[in-house]
Amino acid sequence: MNAPDRNPRRAFIAAAGAGVAGLGFTAIAPGLHLMAVASEANAAARPAGTAASPAVRWGLLIDATKCAPGCTKCIDACHTENGVNEKLPDARQASQWIRKIELVDRRNGKKTELPMMCQHCAKPPCVDVCPTGASMKRADGIVLVDRHTCIGCRYCMMACPYKARSLVHVPLTEQNPEVPRGQGCVESCTLCVHRVDKGQIPACVESCPEGAMIFGDLNDPSSAIAKRIASVPTTQVRSDLRLNQAVRYQGI
């Protein structure tokens, strides 16, 4: 019900590869790479009854140079997958688990676009400030909100350096059965934890027609994401805060 149709994406990659020469070639190679990552994650599916392992640290690598201007496929895929679809009269009150940021370098006018979401910090300020411990980090590094104990105080929203969190401002009824979310609780990107636990990759990564996102285990030196990080310069946003995020960017 929720996964976007995959065929148009493949068609897009093929068209991009065939049509737009330079850009197309850079897009198709990571596209193939993406398939490899997907199967790798599938192989790592955790058996039922076992807990998330601290040996694993799930992460994302986003190549901003490949992020196509105006494209919102990852946002649409995320919000479809997670049932984030409520329309509010004041858009500032609606939840956004992931958003597209357009950057213009003040020094030279260079334009960049990239998707921004919960950065899944190793030392998350939201977890530090939460009075009830509802804001939590799983053993494998995924930062989540336990909505059973979230009281909706919004202190985590004040503390997050990335503006990654939203408060659900209205009663909800059409949640995805696998993604519970509700009024009065704070929420953010879960790194598609319900998919990752099944051995799938996050919806945003799967949806990216440019193959600009890689998902995988940062702790496994043989994983595609770890290899890429070891070979090309990547950055963590606001690295001055020393929060050691699991989401890294390339090309900013």
């Binding site: 530090d128 400030v129 009075p131 009830t132 509802a134 009281i151 105080c153 202190y155 009065g184 704070v186």
Partner: peptide, 25 residues
């Protein structure tokens, strides 16, 4: 004003020692 004011008891039963709000509780 809490998003889930009905859960105020949770603030008393679940305590996070690193939270300034927690200290205030």
């Amino acid at each position: 004003d809490l998003g889930r004011a009905d859960r105020i008891m949770v603030a008393a039963t679940h305590f996070n020692p690193t939270s300034v709000f927690g200290w205030n509780v």
